[in-house]
Write a protein that binds this DNA or RNA. Structure first.
Lengths: 216, 216
DNA sequence: GAGCGATGTATCGAGTCGATATGTCGTAGG
DNA sequence: CCTACGACATATCGACTCGATACATCGCTC
């Protein structure tokens, strides 16, 4: 799950951990933003696997969000990094290092691999995969969406089968189950919309490559 | 989360771990059913805290599900338990013990305490609490639902504020966020329905006590 | 120049998951 | 008969995640 998010974000921009987490919060809603206790170990894992590497340079693009005066902060961080990079002895040395990560070719391959993974049972993981599914070809996207749709449909009629064997459920539990079924149905409808859009859009070819920009 | 589910289920029926897990699966959909790696440590925790106790007797009611021939199994398990209960030396002794748990008075107090907890940010935990909120008084239920509603409303307009600063989100991410917003709105509407039903129902008194049964 | 809040990296304890081990029981099949 | 298999049942392991926290620096204000 978190691997997809990291690789996907790093493919757009070279980032450090803190910024990575902020973007994930904006992307998916702050509730399912990963914690540092997941993020940093995950970065170390990915670095050890060769999927990302620390570039230790300035990020490719400045955040460019006008509501925070972080431009001066960026410069200061740069100065601080220049001072701090020599310190790398003890683990608890701390200090600023602002390790900026970038994705490698292996990481891009890994991202694609994770995106086409047949397992679509994890809800959060699927959401993240949709967020970055522009890395897939059209047919791969359709594959992904249809597999997910099948998963949800399966949950639905499993729900209907185990619904109320003796009718003995309290009103609150009943209401809860109904709401859940509605949410499930809405999700299926959403996937159907996505699939319809996918098949209607007249672009049978370029999918994984960057769109060169058709206007302005 | 899991504590509420265990205490709530055990308050209806005395059960052992395996059956507990099955019921949780039926109750909340098999996807968010807890694993044994969570269930058994949780049972031990609750037993150590004095909230549940092993009764080591036959379960109060047989499963009574006609589709599985578990009646013979029940008898056999009884015989097996009689043979196995003496063995309690080694940790890895294994075998059948079929430890049947029941909830204590302290456990019931704990359940109530967990149900009125002001923290409603955990989605799964809230669902479980709704499933067992018949243990609450009407005013406590309204409190619970309204707090949850406020939480969701806060998420909604936080979403709307951070929506699209520069409009630069891909179509898939946009669709994902829209779907999420819709789900959030549907959840708020569901809570409003629950609240309306709560206030319309003409039963201002009996809520926490057991209904003695008005029919048959 | 001290305090404070944002930035930033990193770890800890607790809890959860999925897989697996271990063992019993009933039944099907050779 | 016995052997394999699957349901029942308890329990643990390793990997992972979370929330909290520690630690350190920067820029700002007073």
């Amino acid at each position: 799950m978190i691997d997809v998010a990291i690789l996907g974000l790093l493919d757009d921009d070279e980032l450090h951990g803190y910024e990575l987490r902020k973007r994930l919060g904006e992307l998916l809603g702050s509730r399912l933003a990963v914690s540092y206790g997941s993020l940093y170990p995950a970065l170390n894992r990915l670095e050890a696997a060769g999927h990302v590497k620390a570039v230790t340079g300035l990020p490719a693009r400045a955040p460019a969000s006008p509501m925070s005066g972080s431009l001066a902060g960026e410069l200061a961080a740069y100065r601080a990094r220049r001072r701090a990079t020599t310190d790398q002895g003890g683990r608890r040395s701390g200090g600023r290092g602002k390790k900026v990560y970038g994705v490698t070719d292996g990481g891009r391959r890994r991202l694609h691999e994770l995106l086409v993974d047949p397992d679509v049972s994890d809800d959060r993981a699927f959401a993240v995969r949709v967020a970055f599914c522009h890395h897939l070809s059209r047919s791969e996207r359709i594959e992904l969406f249809e597999r997910r749709r099948a998963e949800l449909a399966q949950r639905l009629d499993q729900r209907r089968r185990t619904a109320n064997p003796s009718g003995r459920v309290g009103p609150y539990l009943r209401s809860l189950l109904e709401r859940d079924t509605e949410a499930l149905a809405a999700d299926v409808a959403w996937l159907d919309r996505l699939l319809a859009a996918e098949r209607a859009d007249p672009h049978p070819d370029s999918a994984v490559g960057h769109d060169p920009g058709g206007h302005t």
